[in-house]
Simulated scan of single mutants.
Amino acid sequence: MLLVVVTCLNLTQVIGRYVFSTGFNWTEELMRYLMIWLMMLGSVACIFRAEHMAVETLETRVDPAKARLVKSALYTVAAIFCVFVLVYGWPLALRNAAQVAPASGIPMIYPYMALPVGAALMLVQIALSWVVGFEPDQTTDDREGAS
């Protein structure tokens, strides 16, 4: 849905610039903030579906029995990074609560909250991956492919 909104904003900016000979400053700013949210929420989805970028070279070079340990170590590094983003991103967002975006006029706490919210959701998904497993459920993928 966020990608559809960003696309509509981009089209609005292009139409405004070439049809009406005027650009809408707020569309570019709002697109930037929505893309930050899109990236952070998309990262959570990638962890859920095990489609995120990974260092697969490490997994393929070890014994298949130890590949789960390597993947767990990689998820641990990602979790540590998410903790840092959460710990430093939350106060940063709160410090910018009174600031307002120059073109769109939205409070800057909304773009800044993308980092701690996304990091917290990624931590939850990483924890679920440790409990349930690191690969997506194959039966779900098989059912989706048959539809």
Rank of each mutant, 00 (worst) to 15 (best):
P102D: 05
V14F: 05
V6D: 01
Q13F: 15
L9V: 10
F24N: 08
A101W: 03
L74T: 11
G105D: 07
L92W: 06
A54N: 13
L38K: 00
G16C: 09
T7L: 08
P107F: 06
E51A: 13
L34G: 11
V85R: 00
V85P: 03
L34V: 12
E56R: 09
L58D: 08
N10S: 10
A45I: 02
Y75Q: 01
Q13K: 04
A67N: 12
L92R: 02
V83Q: 08
A50R: 12
T76H: 04
H52S: 02
L74Y: 09
S21C: 06
R49P: 00
I80V: 15
F24W: 14
I80P: 03
L94C: 06
A103D: 11
L38Q: 07
G42F: 13
G105A: 06
V44I: 02
A73V: 15
E56W: 02
A103N: 06
N25P: 08
L86K: 02
N25V: 10
Y33C: 05
Y75N: 05
A54C: 12
S72Q: 14
L38M: 13
T22L: 10
A65P: 06
E59M: 14
C82Y: 09
A98G: 14
L11D: 00
G105C: 07
G89F: 07
R95K: 13
Y88W: 05
T12C: 11
L74I: 14
A79T: 08
L92E: 02
T27H: 08
P91L: 01
T12H: 07
S21N: 15
Q13H: 14
E59V: 15
I36N: 00
S72A: 15
E56S: 13
G42S: 06
N25H: 05
L34E: 11
L92G: 04
F84N: 03
F24D: 02
W37K: 04
A97T: 11
F20T: 06
R61S: 13
F84I: 03
A78C: 06
S72L: 12
G105S: 09
S104R: 02
W26C: 01
V70P: 09
L74R: 02
A73M: 15
I47G: 00
V44M: 01
A73N: 08
N96F: 10
A50F: 10
C82H: 05
L58Q: 04
S21P: 01
L9F: 10
E29H: 07
R95Y: 09
V19Y: 12
A73T: 12
